[in-house]
């Protein structure tokens, strides 16, 4: 039986803080973008915060993750610095990629984050490779590949999982099934009751959990990670959740109903977690308020400092292409 997160003051506060950080960070991004202060494109994971929060709680700092175009949450949950993330989105020299990558390419190697990815399923074989490396180096590290339901249509998904299964690599394929890949419903796309049914065909364990429940995601990830570390090979996890916002700014939400969106807004993972923590006695209302206030302050200062940082410079573009 795993730790009950909501009953543990420290874990509960940390998990709640992570979810609020993701929510507030993305609300700030949305606001800056809306006011024309941020450019490019963006993909928000508002509503999905419990997945990276629960999953990363089961990981060590030196465990690896690969992430996606919708990667702010993974990045924050693995321990990235919001100021450097915000600086990246604001095209600053102090950003994680020195303004060269933007939202879709943030990596934080210090916390094991091998990067967001602009290519759907691009990170899946990379996670397989990181797990291969961990196994060959004998480090006991584990890799978690966050990916969307839509990524399961890509050949790269199949090939990455096949190799991991053959070599019994320490990798967890964690699908955030937010019910759509852009406008394609995952129910229509894949002839499966549950996406985890697919795992059997690859000869690996598969499980479906409530992706809006931190504990459920944590438990499934913990079990998979423990197995992987012990040499038991890869696992597939489907975490069912929902993206509240459009796919990106070009989305007119024509493929889903207002009712559906409202229904899922009613399943907001944050108040759900707060209620559980109150009931379990892990957090008091004062604790909950303090977490929220602290995150707000932290984020506000992250945005301010990021804004004040110097703009990315074009001086050494040509010399930045090859490693030396």
């Amino acid at each position: 039986m795993n730790t009950q997160i909501v009953a543990d003051r420290e874990l509960a506060a940390a998990s709640l803080a992570t979810m609020w950080k993701i929510r507030r960070f993305e609300e700030a991004v949305e606001d800056l973008y809306g006011r024309g202060l941020m450019h490019g494109t963006m993909h928000l994971s508002i509503g999905q915060e419990a997945v990276p929060t629960g999953a990363c709680l089961a990981l060590n700092k030196d465990d690896y993750i690969t992430s996606t175009h919708r990667g702010h949450g993974h990045c924050i949950a693995k321990g990235a610095d919001m100021e450097r993330m915000m600086a990246e989105l604001l095209a600053k020299e102090t950003g994680y990629c020195r303004g060269r990558g933007g939202s879709m390419h943030i990596a934080d190697t210090e916390t094991g984050n091998l990067g967001a990815n602009g290519i759907v399923a691009g990170g899946i074989p990379i996670a397989t490779g990181a797990a291969l490396s961990a196994k060959m180096r004998g480090t006991k590290q584990v890799a978690v590949s966050f990916h969307g339901d839509g990524a399961m249509g890509e050949g790269a998904w199949h090939e990455g999982v096949v190799l991991a299964a053959m070599w019994q690599l320490p990798v967890v394929f964690l699908c955030e099934n937010n019910l759509y890949g852009m406008s394609m419903s995952s129910e229509k796309a894949f002839n499966l009751d549950q996406l985890s049914d697919r795992a059997k065909g690859y000869g690996i364990p598969g499980v479906t959990v409530d992706g809006n429940d931190v504990q459920a995601v944590y438990d499934a990830t913990k079990e998979a990670v423990d197995r992987a570390r012990a040499g038991g090979g890869p696992t597939f996890i489907e975490a069912k959740t929902y993206r509240w916002r459009g796919h990106s700014k070009s989305d007119k939400n024509l493929y889903r109903t207002r009712d559906e969106i409202d229904e899922w807004r009613g399943k907001d993972p944050i108040p759900h977690f707060e209620a559980l923590a109150l009931a379990a006695g892990g957090l008091t209302q004062a604790d909950i308020d303090a977490v929220r206030d602290n995150v707000r302050t932290e984020l506000r200062s992250a945005v301010q400092r990021a804004n004040a940082a110097p703009d990315a410079t074009a001086d050494d573009l040509l010399s930045a292409v090859y490693a030396r």
């Binding site: 095209a91 303004g99 060269r100 990558g101 933007g102 703009d311 990315a312 410079t313 040509l318 930045a320």
Partner: peptide, 10 residues
């Protein structure tokens, strides 16, 4: 001869 950078000026 570089990948396209994100920052608008770049």
């Amino acid at each position: 001869d570089i990948p396209i950078p994100y920052a608008p000026k770049l």
